[in-house]
């Protein structure tokens, strides 16, 4: 009894609420006779394609920047790299790899500049990050129109510019998901995707325990202390910003291949929020986070979303009411999570 009590205490109230909510949804799945295996397969994929985006919060929080609301910056880098990989018709795993490599180059530059900016606005990083993300997304709306891409597969059939949504069928649609995929009964296990996520989480876990990672943690949790210890906190913040942007770029490529298409223009606008919500639900705060928080949070948050979708459409079969319902749930959770930001437990 005492043990379970302590266990529950350790888990914390927000996670318990979310888990309870998930349970209710799962019960609904049972009652409404929704095919469970299909939901489970979707759930696994959703968690997989979102985890690296959430992971992008880790270096930013650890380095003292806080939640990276400027995540769209990284996402834009990833999208740009993705477009280049499509332009030159890289397909399959090779395509994904090329996109990632190119995006890393962009992200390093952008993350570095973004870090310089954040060092000038200490204390209001989250607000500045949000605005920065919004403005860059808007700016890129123009850029997508005028960038010199020629591949007809990604351009509007007539007129100028790139398409709103680019289906990846001819390039690398679900290439990672389907790598070494196998089935347990009816449930599809996307081995390639899971392995990729594991690799990124593992690398970040190793990073946290490395000398650089520990120095970054010190700079993030007490800049005065780190100054006293001869560590340049500003430099650590820039490294954090770069890493976060790199993960954002890679994250969107993994997301896009699993989803089946790239979405340009205003699509990246709100993408920081689910990532932030996920890590908050996982138990992270504006100043503290671990890989465990990221994994747990993404698991809970994305599971809820993927279970909520079929439940909603079973309850409201007609019209787009189910879509409204799903949006309410998703934004409601995000709102709940954001209300917990910066509040130490």
């Amino acid at each position: 009894m005492k043990k379970t009590k302590r266990y529950i205490q350790k888990l914390g109230v927000p996670r318990l609420i979310m888990l309870a909510f998930l349970m209710i949804l799962l019960i609904a799945v049972g009652i409404l006779h929704i095919p469970f295996t299909l939901t489970l397969s979707q759930c696994i994929v959703r968690v997989g394609i979102n985890i690296v985006l959430a992971l992008a919060m880790l270096p930013s929080i650890r380095s003292g920047i806080g939640m990276n609301f400027g995540l769209p910056l990284g996402i834009i880098c990833g999208l740009l790299a993705g477009m280049i990989s499509l332009e030159y018709n890289f397909t399959g795993l090779m395509g994904i790899l090329m996109a990632m490599l190119i995006s890393i180059i962009f992200s390093i530059i952008v993350g570095w500049l973004y870090g310089l900016l954040l060092n000038k606005v200490k204390g209001s990083e989250m607000m500045v990050g949000t605005y920065m993300g919004f403005s860059i997304v808007s700016l890129m709306c123009i850029a997508w129109m005028i960038l010199p891409f020629h591949n007809t597969g990604i351009r509007w059939p007539m007129g100028n510019g790139l398409r709103m949504t680019i289906t990846l069928e001819q390039w690398y649609d679900r290439a990672l998901n389907e790598l070494w995929m196998f089935k347990i009964g009816e449930v599809e296990i996307p081995t390639g995707l899971i392995l990729t996520c594991a690799v990124f989480c593992g690398v970040m876990w190793l990073f946290c325990r490395s000398r650089l990672g520990i120095r970054m943690l010190a700079a993030g949790s007490n800049p005065e202390f780190s100054k006293f210890s001869g560590i340049d906190a500003n430099r650590q913040r820039i490294i954090g910003s770069i890493l976060s942007t790199v993960l954002g770029g890679i994250g969107i490529i993994i997301y896009a291949q699993g989803f089946g298409f790239y979405q340009l223009y205003t699509a990246p606008l709100m993408m920081a929020f689910p990532a932030v919500a996920a890590v908050l639900i996982g138990g992270a705060t504006a100043s503290k986070i671990s890989v465990g928080n990221v994994v747990l949070g993404t698991l809970i948050f994305q599971s809820i979303l993927s279970v909520a979708a079929p439940v909603a459409s079973a309850i409201f079969p007609e019209g787009n009411l189910s879509e409204v319902f799903r949006t309410i749930i998703s934004n409601g959770i995000i709102l709940y999570a954001l209300s917990k930001i910066g509040r130490e437990e």
Binding site: R211, I214, R215, L217, A218, S221, N222, E224, F225, K227, F228, S229, G230, I231, S287, K288
Partner: peptide
């Protein structure tokens, strides 16, 4: 102010300079 990482463990605080 500058002496401790209050949010970190005693262990991290003690070994930090040697490690860093």
């Amino acid at each position: 102010g500058v002496g401790l990482l209050l949010d970190q463990s005693i262990l991290t605080n003690i070994i930090f300079n040697n490690l860093s």
